[in-house]
Write a protein that binds this DNA or RNA. Sequence first.
DNA 1: GATTTTTTTCTCGACAGTCGAGAAATTTAG
DNA 2: CTAAATTTCTCGACTGTCGAGAAAAAAATC
Lengths: 407, 407
Amino acid sequence: MLTKSSTELVRQRNSVLVLATLRRHGPLAHTEISDFTRLSSATVSAITADLEKAQVIEKSEQQAASGRGRPRVLLRQRRDCGYLIVVIISSDAVQYSLVDYSGKLIDRFSEERSHDPDGAGRFVNGVRAGLERILSRSRIEREKVLLISISSKGLVNSSEPVLVWSPIFGSDQIDFELALKPEWKAKVILDNETLLVAAALGAREENVKGADFRSLAALSLGHSIGLGIVRRTTHGGHEVSAPNFGHMLHMANGGLCRCGTRGCIEAYAGFYAILRTAFEVPLDTIPAKFVPVAELDKIAARARQGHRISGFAFRQAGLALGNGLSRMLSLTERMPIAITGPGTRYYDLLRQGIEEGLGQSHMVRREGMPELRVVADEQILVFEGHLNRALAVIDEDIVVAGLQGGD
Amino acid sequence: MLTKSSTELVRQRNSVLVLATLRRHGPLAHTEISDFTRLSSATVSAITADLEKAQVIEKSEQQAASGRGRPRVLLRQRRDCGYLIVVIISSDAVQYSLVDYSGKLIDRFSEERSHDPDGAGRFVNGVRAGLERILSRSRIEREKVLLISISSKGLVNSSEPVLVWSPIFGSDQIDFELALKPEWKAKVILDNETLLVAAALGAREENVKGADFRSLAALSLGHSIGLGIVRRTTHGGHEVSAPNFGHMLHMANGGLCRCGTRGCIEAYAGFYAILRTAFEVPLDTIPAKFVPVAELDKIAARARQGHRISGFAFRQAGLALGNGLSRMLSLTERMPIAITGPGTRYYDLLRQGIEEGLGQSHMVRREGMPELRVVADEQILVFEGHLNRALAVIDEDIVVAGLQGGD
DNA sequence: GATTTTTTTCTCGACAGTCGAGAAATTTAG
DNA sequence: CTAAATTTCTCGACTGTCGAGAAAAAAATC
């Protein structure tokens, strides 16, 4: 059902638009905001006056006159308007970052995770302690933390911050909202890690290509396999999703996966799967929990020297990825695929299999091979995705909460 | 990039909203419109006055006073406001329907298609002739036809009315906009047939479940395999898509498909594929162009009597469908699956395979089997989908074109 | 140093849209 | 014939955007 529209909504949307351009382009003068947003100067005045009154933005002190005419008054976000805590959960550590409203990193530390199965409950307590720690290290009041943005590998509920399935905890669901509600008033959001990578790459791509950007997929290779898809919507926004790609069926009754099912893509392309194939262990062997990367490096070295079985393991992994990607593309549209994650160091060995696997489908035969590119620095992209998403959410919340003049 | 908002946009959206509720609920009084849309009475007055001036809606003449108080004045769409031509292309015929602005069917006929390969060019000329015929049979001026809505099986460009690939013409692209531009000023839209089925089912489902409706997939079984997906967007609208499901890879290096690729789902689940398996013809045999349904009925009868190979053929088809669906669900979310098309008559034989194929994936094991339901009357659903979509487009166009008071 | 030019910001009036309240219209009940 | 009920319509208040022009302020020019 469509929903009604009103003038207040107009103001809300335009206010968010102003905040978003300020975020994208840094401190801007009145006229520049008007240019970027295509709002009239009068409207920009009205909106910025409101935002200023609500202590969300502030006038920059004077700045060296950069030309003639009345000097510009730059508007910038007030850093102390609110804060964001980013929590990045990976298989061996949890990283906490404190960021101010302008997106500037204030503090950061990582905590190693014990590899013994501590269970979901103890893990959550660890996260709570980590949050307390980063808060107390700063001099920031608890109320000023507007948002806690968490990411993990695995399957995430799209509407609530609930980790539904993860390679680490399996089906032990974790409801972060529930867990953090006692001490935190801040909103809690949870996203799949590769979704954030895709979001960040999509934002970058749009900055370059502008309206030409349509869609993009990010494929993360590592112990597990992640996929994120970002698409432009008709309204000009971005829609992102993180399908359960690693556990999509590759081959019926195939190799045993960590998740307990047979034939998942991960059971062919995950690090443990490559190891299993290379050592000619039977495919129904229960896979190793952790595989040291050094181990895989050795296999890669042998493969590069022409060792048959080692090469075959990587090619097999590539085939599973290629077939899976071709299936994904059959269900969406042709889009570039950015490959990230620790597995990119073996891309030279995987590539042939990926392309062969892609080529086996009607879709690729008709429309041609999608663009494949390797993107390093997955960690940076994850953080960038966090910021893009979280700060946009904060902007929206601030505007929707109403701008009834700060205290 | 977000885009700016304005008060005119508000009016446009609300006008469309009024037209949409009128469409859904039939002739309504002022107060009822206000109730359904949650717009204030004053706003409804303003909008309906504009629409009436533009000759889009009209006040219903008298009607029996149904209670006390001032009698209601019903508002209804003016049927002569504009017309719509629906063209449904199927493998053996093309059906033309003329519909007025209120959605009432005025005229309809079908034209058989010659089975000799007439090629895309001659086919398009046939469509042009059909359109002329349905126009001249009515007394309607050409300018009053606002939209031509076409559907076909196959792959459709999402933004332009271009048939990219179809089981009938292969890769001979057909650009209907280009082909019809000389004589028609009307807008031309083209949709995949199963997409329309999904859209219609989604609309029905939402009428029943209201906000509880989230998403749904329609699977059409026949000579070829179609899939349509409909999802509610956050704004309350519906997003539909028609992926290339029939030619998604089922099994690498598998049976030869009509499209020339090996291992497509259709090469296991299409009618010709079932025939091929049942007759133990090698899987790389070039498949028959047309399979009489009677032939398949015979195999089904044998299968029901316990004939092994015949039963196997259907089970094999079900497996391909089930695996494909499980892959689709891995990429989206769990959703009910409505099965339509002529193949539903064999559902008793397919079902076991479908469920087994679905059950082989992590996703189904974790979240459980999706709801499977058989929906007959595919033809009616296709037409219903046409109307839903086309009339919504017309409403939008009328409002956006501006309501500068019809002549 | 005074004046002009240029550029930016701010303000004002016009216009569009929504809403609530109440007036007007019209039928039924008593 | 009057009162009650119900629907439609209108009016004034409020909020929003926009264009134009006034006000501000520094650089350039005479």
